[in-house]
Nucleic acid binder design. Structure first.
Lengths: 199, 199
DNA sequence: ATTTCCACTGAACACTTGTTCAAACAATTC
DNA sequence: GAATTGTTTGAACAAGTGTTCAGTGGAAAT
């Protein structure tokens, strides 16, 4: 198998391990076992364990970024539709899986890895917040809104994180769909006449 | 020193360690060092490391529970004021410290410890959700609301978690006060004529 | 056919971990 | 003062960690 292929295989095994055993429980032996490969191979493709973890997080972050960015770039969508697309991306069935949520919160959970997280996704997070802030500002031009675009963008991020955590902690009580509807419902309250749901 | 006092001392040291080094980085040696005591003493007062971690989380959960429960029990407050008290408790300066937030999210972060969390705080969480659901139902009797009490209670929990995470991750950009105002602003949107802020 | 290169293996190493336990200490009781 | 009880210490131990590295295999290049 190609080198790039092996790397992806190992990263996938790492995601599975983190979801099963947590970051601290994710040993190189378990990762190699999960991938059906030898221990030494991990260090061959990733200089160190930290590099493997960094690459794993980067993969997830990039995957998420591509998902919302493609719709935001489309010229045929208006501001409301683009915000809608960002919300959809957040709860997309490929993005919002229990396994991947477990990885995100694993990095949130420890001071040491929180630094990794900031290093890797600070730019991406900031970009998304800035984009949605601009989109809310665009919406605000045409309608009276009770909150500033800045506040709305930040509140949206908080809602994303909070619903993600609830899906992770209580998967039986919280579904992706319910979470998405919850967020859209909130946006509908803030932006009169917008984000009405069909149902 | 009394046995109970030592336990508290060790739990406090554990909180500090988790905030500094994360759950996996919290070794019994570091805890004992942080407390200025010997290694063996930790195992003397807590049979095992897991017990120490459980007791640490239980202490934080109980502290939080007492904080909102006392106001909710008061007969002289109405439903709106009680919900307000729950929000205030969530962002109280004694509850919502970076150190303690770090502990909460440390337990969220790993599958193994997530089970600890559920075991210890599932009842408390459920109780708070049920209480706020009932309070929202009371409010709904007297005014038209766009969302059910059930939905509101769950949305409130999501907002709590999301804002907590943002305070932990980006303490410079998110303050306790801003988070509280954000939550109150949301409640004001959902409950017409209520939760108006003075400023 | 020989060399070169790359992917791969798993034993070995130094190190850290949670836990145990014999010994020391301090306070109280007899 | 002797004995008993409950704390406290830190050395010792087995288990598990990330990383290294000499060696294997096989395919492409010479």
């Amino acid at each position: 198998m190609t080198s790039e292929g092996r790397r992806k295989q190992l990263i996938e095994a790492t995601v599975t391990c983190i979801a099963l055993h947590g970051l601290s429980g994710t040993t190189l032996r378990k990762v190699s076992q999960q991938a059906g490969l030898s221990l030494g191979l991990v260090n061959f493709h990733f200089a160190t364990k930290d590099v493997l973890l960094e690459e794993t997080l980067r993969t997830l972050a990039e995957e998420h970024r591509v998902r919302w960015k493609t719709d935001v770039m489309r010229a045929d969508l208006d501001a409301e539709q683009k915000i809608h697309a960002i919300v959809e991306a957040q709860f997309h069935s490929r993005i919002c899986t229990r396994k991947k949520l477990a990885v995100w919160f694993a990095f949130f959970g420890e001071a040491r890895y929180r630094k990794f997280y900031r290093k890797i996704t600070a730019d991406i997070d900031e970009e998304r917040i800035e984009v949605s802030r601009a989109l809310f500002a665009e919406i605000a031009e045409n309608s009276e809104m009770s909150r500033s675009p800045e506040e709305l963008a930040l509140a949206l991020e908080s809602l994303f994180d909070g619903t993600w955590l609830n899906i992770l902690m209580y998967p039986d009580a919280f579904s992706k769909e319910a979470a998405r509807d919850q967020v859209l419902c909130y946006l509908a309250l803030c932006c009169p006449g917008r984000f009405m749901q069909k149902s």
